[in-house]
Design a protein around this nucleic acid. Sequence first.
DNA 1: AATTGTGAATTGATTCACAGCT
DNA 2: AGCTGTGAATCAATTCACAATT
Lengths: 207, 207
Amino acid sequence: MPKVEVPRKSIYRLSIYQRSRLKLIENNVETVSSEALASAAGVKSTQLRKDLTYFGQFGTRGLGYNVKALSRVLNDVLGTTSYQPVILVGVGNLGSALLRYKGFNKEGFEITAAFDLAPTRERRTEGARVPVYSANTMADFIRNHQVRMAIIAVPSEAAQNVVNELVEAGVQAILNFSPTVLQVPENVTVNNVDLALELENLSYFIR
Amino acid sequence: MPKVEVPRKSIYRLSIYQRSRLKLIENNVETVSSEALASAAGVKSTQLRKDLTYFGQFGTRGLGYNVKALSRVLNDVLGTTSYQPVILVGVGNLGSALLRYKGFNKEGFEITAAFDLAPTRERRTEGARVPVYSANTMADFIRNHQVRMAIIAVPSEAAQNVVNELVEAGVQAILNFSPTVLQVPENVTVNNVDLALELENLSYFIR
DNA sequence: AATTGTGAATTGATTCACAGCT
DNA sequence: AGCTGTGAATCAATTCACAATT
């Protein structure tokens, strides 16, 4: 599987295809054309086909893609076949919010533990069943449970240090909610979600 | 100001330059080179210069950019000079989380009101001072307060209808947390934040 | 001497156009 | 006949290289 040279955006789209496919499977469709699936996903059919052929040939000319087979391929490529434990670091404002958010579970992820400098803060975790541990137990937890993915929602000043510790302990992929540019070794992937940035960006488009 | 043909990503970067600049102003620097600012922002200096020249010439050759003047330009371009009221639609899981999140305020935005089908749901808004109103008062509120920006965090099935109502009432920019592709007229801008998608995407990069 | 501003070159992503299967 | 797979063409964004300016 050629992990390199595949455009980042293609991989994002694979997830979207998977979701669009979910709707189709409900309708009991056996087979789907690139045209139909692409339009459900909001892209051009050639783009869908090109995205898929980065990973092989899965369709049947004249017919389309077998829905179940396609689903399997997408799961394989995306790595969503095997369960991945995810930890959350920083149970403040946003962090506690994310703990309660059920959208992750819905798509097959589960936050197995959370870490914070002051793990016992009041009212923070009410309603969530995820345990919150002290930050100094984090590295051990990662090693013991072979955690490869982490979500960080700590103050920006703290972010780089946390990331260093995560990487050191073996984390390979980080979803970063702290508004900072993080330095990581090249075998580690960071996806940034910057809420304030998105709002600020929108304000540009209001005239 | 040539709103069109400027790459979307450039505009995102302008916000990052603004932030990086904030750190520099603290250090009382009068002037800053594209090289210094770019490296603080994590980009190449030529990219910064190109990004800026979409909007004019603000530097002095041989010297760099005046920090204060640059800040003013960035605020002007981004539209962050004038205060913008923002509403939130959907006070469920994620929505109530966003209500409590203070990061928006920090960057000069404030959620002035929230709307939900069941505005009185328990414990949802404890700790937040934002009023939650019934969804059927939304359109009036938008018109009365000239709201142009909205954050939506409703279930995906509901998202398109909500968006239609927002647009109809005059909203021009939408930050969408619902995992759906939204249809909007071309004078309306949507930024999507899809948390589950980001996680799924990361799982690709774990080998 | 230092640093911006910018056309030209390059790199990257998307779309086209059509050959190749079923 | 219908639809995939893909090299070639186009479009977009980034980076280079250097002339222009202080």
